[in-house]
């Protein structure tokens, strides 16, 4: 056996290098291309100013945070369409609870709203075997409706300075708080994905659930944990919206699920599960923010922006396709 394998070795290595193709690195190429393009074309409109670039980071922070958790969901071969609505719900729950009970109960209530929804999503998918697409599609409407209902569609202002400082409104020295949250989410996500047994189990379950089960991985628990986390992280993202915009509103996060999923897929995570690229996800999110920002500076109206963003999502999925 050794002789055969040895003679095939060079071809094996070349096959591996061939596999490290543009497909998994497309996001970095695209990011640099678009950045350079905007720098040249929109230099006069203030694209390259430090303030504008920090703004991009601020505006994409919530997307980046949700996208890190979504990377786990998609690597696990599931989907979570409810993240945007959960963010909106948690923003109003947090704001209302702060007003009535104070800072800490407010934070806990916000996270709890995400945990409850994540647990319902996860339970239905993991144990009742309902496809996550359907469960979270239903939850998208349910959470959005709930947020609108309990607030009577009214914005919920937040007066607590500490809350606003911590959750995205403030800066830590020269560093915007939202940048810190982004870095924190990406760092934790990367370590968990690449250096913990849980991350390996998520990838295994997404890559081949039967094989994972035969290897002794409790795949249902993994699915549950992933969707639970996604709910909690979406709630955190909603709280960051509330901090940055100093209020809770049911509209916060609306439609974000599509941006988040596009960011994850663009970043190189396989839509069919088994592969999860956290750093790619970060750049995917920044790319989406970059495009948004550029389109606004270029003077496109909301409708036109939507068209371009939709086209990018389709391109992202097409590029993630296997040969």
């Amino acid at each position: 056996m050794s002789s055969t394998a040895t003679t095939e070795r060079p071809s094996l290595i070349s096959r591996i290098t061939a596999h490290m193709d543009w497909r998994s690195n497309i996001i970095y190429i695209a990011f640099i291309l678009v950045f350079v393009l905007f720098s040249v074309m929109l230099g006069d409109s203030g694209f390259l100013t430090g303030n504008n670039l920090l703004n991009i980071v601020r505006q994409t922070a919530t997307i980046s945070v949700m996208a890190v958790a979504m990377t786990f969901v998609i690597a696990n071969a599931e989907i979570d369409l409810s993240v945007g609505s959960v963010a909106g719900l948690s923003s109003v729950v947090t704001a209302m609870a702060i007003t009535h009970y104070g800072l800490l109960p407010g934070i806990l209530a916000g996270l709890a709203s995400g945990a409850v929804i994540g647990a319902i999503n996860g339970g239905l998918v993991a144990w009742l075997k309902i496809p996550s697409f359907l469960v979270t599609l239903g939850m998208l409407g349910l959470a959005a409706g709930l947020a609108q209902w309990i607030t009577g569609s009214a914005p919920q202002p937040i007066g607590d300075r500490w809350y606003i400082l911590i959750f995205g409104g403030g800066d830590f020295g020269p560093v915007p708080g939202l940048l810190v949250w982004t870095v924190l989410a990406v760092a934790v996500g990367w370590i968990v994905m690449n250096r913990t047994r849980f991350g390996r189990q998520v990838l295994a379950t997404g890559g081949n659930p039967t094989a994972a089960a035969y290897t002794g991985i409790r795949t249902a628990q993994i699915k549950f944990a992933v969707l639970l986390t996604s709910g909690i992280v979406a709630a955190l993202a909603g709280m960051l919206y509330a901090g940055r915009l100093e209020s809770g509103r049911f509209q916060w996060g609306q439609g974000d699920e599509l941006t988040v999923i596009a960011a994850v897929i663009l970043g190189g995570t396989s839509l069919f599960g088994g592969r999860g690229a956290i750093i790619g996800t970060l750049f995917g999110s920044l790319f989406m923010g970059l495009v948004n920002n550029g389109l606004i500076l270029a003077g496109l109206d909301v409708a036109q922006q939507q068209v371009v963003r939709g086209a990018i999502i389709i391109a992202a999925v097409a590029l993630s396709r296997k040969k």
């Binding site: 047994r197 295994a204 890559g207 081949n208 991985i217 599960g273 088994g274």
Partner: peptide
């Protein structure tokens, strides 16, 4: 798991 390396598969779980 096709997306994992040989070593990762062998040591899985």
């Amino acid at each position: 798991i096709p997306s994992m390396t040989v070593a990762q598969n062998i040591s899985l779980n």
